[in-house]
């Protein structure tokens, strides 16, 4: 295949609410090669989930509106497809893993049937073939195949999330979007699930977008990182670039405010101030009110993107200024 598997360009999404218009995603751009994993990091309200839903064509409408942009997946602009065409892609070529395995499984249907549903729908398998394949998938996520006929409540939280992963992988999709897949799990279970995701990703050579607020999780599974703040990607690059040489003040702040478990530090340095109000985003650089290095320029002009060997930063400290998408 030529070019990246997924290319998101100039994506803008707004939510029209009673209180006003929420600019959820503002000119998001990134691309992802087949088989690679991108970590989409940010705090609540950064627009991570909305970005993912836009790719899936699942932005709730109303109130959500995709005002502009394109999502090219395997050569097709997903935003221009009809709902019927999208249905063929969802669960087949792109699938999603949600945060809470409790609510993303149907409690009254056996896990086996839930896994084979997608196979029957998308791959024209007979029930028997689908059952066989579903059992294989269960084994792949380290659940004995004979538990096929059990219901979600018979599994523990970590096991349920594995079932969800098996469902997502069943049709061998090109891309999986995982929205905080381990946030609801305990640390030791999280470690198990992350380990499993790491090995399956290699086995199936599936590309993945991992949405998370936890930089540690990103470090465990991702090759690329995109840091989001107030609906924009403020910094993106390879794992080494971001973890080894973070440049944006927000990214630096994020690293600094996590207490280090390996080193001895007495004080952590928080990012001052509050999360921006999504109804009333700051002018200029959205991070300027909280930025320790804020300059006059930052208050008025949206910074351009400086690209340094794939390490892209949106900050006046590094760029020459000027609005790129503004």
């Amino acid at each position: 295949m030529n070019g990246p598997l997924l290319e998101v360009a100039d994506l803008n999404v707004i939510y029209k609410t009673y209180e006003g218009t929420v600019a959820a995603v503002n000119g998001v751009e990134f691309s992802l090669e087949a088989g690679r994993t991108l970590g989409l990091v940010g705090e609540s309200g950064a627009g991570k989930t909305t970005t993912a839903l836009s790719i899936m064509g699942l932005v709730p409408s109303p109130p959500g509106i995709i005002t502009s942009g394109s999502v090219n997946f395997a050569g097709k602009n997903l935003l221009s497809l009809s709902e019927k065409e999208m249905k063929k892609i969802r669960g087949n070529h792109i699938s999603m893993i949600f945060q809470d395995p409790m609510t993303s499984l149907n409690p009254v249907v056996t896990v086996g049937v839930q896994i084979s549903e997608a196979l029957v729908a998308h791959q024209n398998l007979s029930e028997a073939e689908a059952e066989k394949k579903a059992m294989e998938m269960l084994e792949k996520v380290q659940i004995p195949g004979q538990r096929y006929r059990e219901y979600p409540h018979e599994f523990s939280g970590g096991m349920r999330q594995r079932v969800v992963i098996a469902m997502a992988l069943a049709c061998n999709p090109g891309l999986i979007i995982a929205d905080e897949p381990t946030t609801a799990l305990d640390v030791t279970i999280q470690a198990q699930v992350l380990e499993l995701m790491r090995s399956l990703k290699e086995e199936f050579s599936t590309a993945m977008i991992m949405i998370t607020h936890d930089l540690g999780v990103v470090g465990e599974v991702c090759d690329h990182v995109a840091v989001m703040y107030a609906g924009r990607i403020v910094e993106t690059g390879s794992l080494e670039q971001i973890f080894g040489n973070a440049r944006h003040p927000y990214t630096l702040g994020l690293f600094r405010c996590i207490p280090d478990i390996e080193e001895e530090t007495s004080k952590i340095r928080p990012i001052e101030g509050l999360m921006p109000d999504p109804l009333d985003l700051p002018s200029g650089c959205p991070f300027h009110p909280r930025c320790p290095q804020c300059m006059d320029l930052c208050r008025t002009v949206v910074p351009g993107v400086l690209d340094d060997g794939g390490h892209r930063v949106m900050c006046h400290l590094y760029g020459k200024g000027g609005a790129v998408h503004g």
Binding site: V187, T188, Q190, A191, L194, D214, L215, G216, V217, V218, G219, E220, L239, E240, F243, G244, F255, I258, I261, E262
Partner: peptide, 8 residues
């Protein structure tokens, strides 16, 4: 050991 650490 299970705590994911944001380090290379």
């Amino acid at each position: 050991a299970a705590v994911p650490i944001p380090k290379l």
